[in-house]
């Protein structure tokens, strides 16, 4: 993970135009790099707003059609702002055994939403994901990339309190410095 070079204001509707231009210039010449560019864009904003996708397409010379084919094919990409805190509860094998379904239901009850939904105030988005790759910490959840391991599955409230206290922010995707 990179350090916390977070975007301060998560609620901005789109990345500043010059940032997208820089992004486009960076990936333009590499074949098959659309995913990387979109990955980075989502890393900055938490999702890919339509305006930004259009601008990126123009700058990279990729038709909007192709961009949306990629965006909608992969579940990872989000087209709408998912909320300030994206809570990903691991439902992989190890976490499952350790009772992660209970944790997930607990958070659902606590927030009053179902898995895959966002709270009406836009604060939280809850999703179940497959293995996050740190089964030793099971059961676990990650919020905006910050990992909360070895959770007490009966204490969803405590997890949310911890999140409120930490205020983890979106961080630019690892891809930023890759290659």
């Amino acid at each position: 993970m990179t350090d916390d070079t977070a975007v301060d204001d998560v609620e901005i509707e789109e990345a500043p135009e010059d940032e997208i231009i820089v992004l486009a210039q960076k990936w333009k010449k590499k074949r098959g790099s659309l995913i990387m560019a979109l990955h980075e864009l989502q890393g900055r904003l938490g999702y890919v707003p339509r305006e930004s996708a259009m601008k990126l397409g123009r700058e990279m010379g990729v038709p909007l059609a192709n961009i949306y084919e990629v965006l909608t094919f992969y579940n990872y990409f989000k087209l709408e702002s998912p909320g300030k805190y994206i809570i990903s509860v691991c439902t992989g094998t190890a976490c499952h055994i350790k009772g992660s379904p209970k944790l997930l239901h607990g958070i659902e009850d606590e927030l009053g939403i179902k898995e895959g939904e966002s709270t009406p105030d836009g604060e939280y988005h809850l999703q179940g994901v497959r293995c996050l790759g740190c089964c030793g910490l099971a059961p676990l959840a990650s919020v905006n990339g910050k990992v909360y391991g070895k959770q007490d599955v009966t204490n969803a409230h405590g997890l949310l309190e911890q999140v409120k206290q930490d205020q983890p922010m979106h961080v630019a995707a690892e891809a930023t410095d890759a290659e």
Binding site: P63, L64, A65, N66, E69, L71, T72, F73
Partner: peptide, 19 residues
């Protein structure tokens, strides 16, 4: 004119012009 595409996948796949 790259104005049509196939979005989503599997059972959710749709042909669309996006705009």
């Amino acid at each position: 004119i790259a104005e049509m595409g196939l979005i989503s996948r599997g059972e959710d796949a749709e042909i669309t012009s996006y705009l």
